[in-house]
């Protein structure tokens, strides 16, 4: 239809944002925040100005405390995510490829999947205490389920017709795996990995708030107990920036992995 090409029909769902405006708003917010604090509307135990938060961050960085907390958190995240994602990938692929495996493990998997990961925290504390094992275990759990589900859906979602094409051209098994199965499932799996990473990060912060001797979550909780609002705000900023970077990095990988897919 000729009218499909009309600019009038294509424009409205597009989102264009002037880069200037998107910088302006946060800067304005920071300025407003600073001015509010300077005006004395809030006592310093309720809200400290951004300059104060920046100074605290600088001090924490100078003493190396910040690096230690971030390092601890990231180590737990990396270790737990690696184990959980690999296990999830293997499990998801297994129940997707083998009907027997699906029948045997599927119902159990989908039943446990109903439980919010965070609800396992009290049980894991009894199992592992509040040490390192507990935090890695909760991250493993948080990463396992989304990846397993994504791998399962991804493999099951490969259109039958593609396998038929492969049969018509008498494609050999390694080629079938590398040229059809992997590229076809990669986008779904990478999306699952990204979701798993952000969930794992959220759950890790929660676990560190509850029980830890280090890590960003613990830094914030200690700040709260000592009524150091500057430390708490610094923790909020750092955890937000880390979450943002994790999400952005994962999204960049996701885009590469799903280049072939129409937007």
């Amino acid at each position: 239809m000729a009218s499909a090409a009309l600019p009038a029909l294509a424009a409205p769902t597009m989102r264009r944002r002037a880069p200037l405006a998107s910088f302006l708003a946060p800067v304005a917010l920071l300025v407003l925040w600073q001015l509010l604090c300077l005006s004395g509307a809030f006592p310093p135990q309720v809200l400290v100005p951004p300059s104060e938060v920046a100074r605290t961050l600088w001090q924490l960085a100078e003493t190396g405390e910040l690096q230690r907390h971030v390092g601890e958190s990231m180590t737990r995240l990396a270790l737990g995510f690696a184990i959980g994602a690999l296990a999830g990938l293997a499990f998801g692929a297994a129940i997707a490829l083998s009907r027997l495996a699906e029948v045997v493990f599927g119902p159990f998997f989908f039943a446990v999947w109903q439980v919010p990961v965070i609800a396992f925290v009290p049980m894991l504390v009894i199992f592992f205490g509040i040490d390192e094992q507990f935090k890695v275990a909760i991250v493993i759990l948080a990463a396992f389920f989304p990846v397993a589900l994504a791998a399962f859906d991804g493999i099951r979602g490969v259109p039958r017709a593609w396998f038929e094409v492969a049969r018509v051209y008498r494609t050999r098994l390694p080629d079938l795996i590398w040229r059809i199965l992997v590229p076809a499932t990669l986008p779904a799996v990478v999306t699952g990995l990204r979701v798993a990473l952000t969930r794992a990060w959220v759950v890790l912060i929660a676990a560190e708030l509850l029980a830890a001797d280090s890590g960003i979550g613990q830094m914030m909780e200690m700040g709260r107990q000592m009524f150091r609002i500057d430390v708490v705000l610094a923790g909020v900023v750092v955890s937000g920036v880390i979450g943002f970077l994790l999400d952005r990095g994962a999204k960049a990988i996701e885009r590469r992995a799903s280049r072939w897919r129409a937007a």
Partner: peptide
């Protein structure tokens, strides 16, 4: 949208439970 979006995106990046210590103080 242009005014609020950056602010909302920034708030969204913070892990949800990360707000607990701050809210605890407030």
């Amino acid at each position: 949208d242009r005014v609020l979006n950056p602010l909302l995106q920034a708030i969204r990046q913070v892990p949800l439970m990360g707000w607990l210590p701050l809210l605890g103080l407030w």
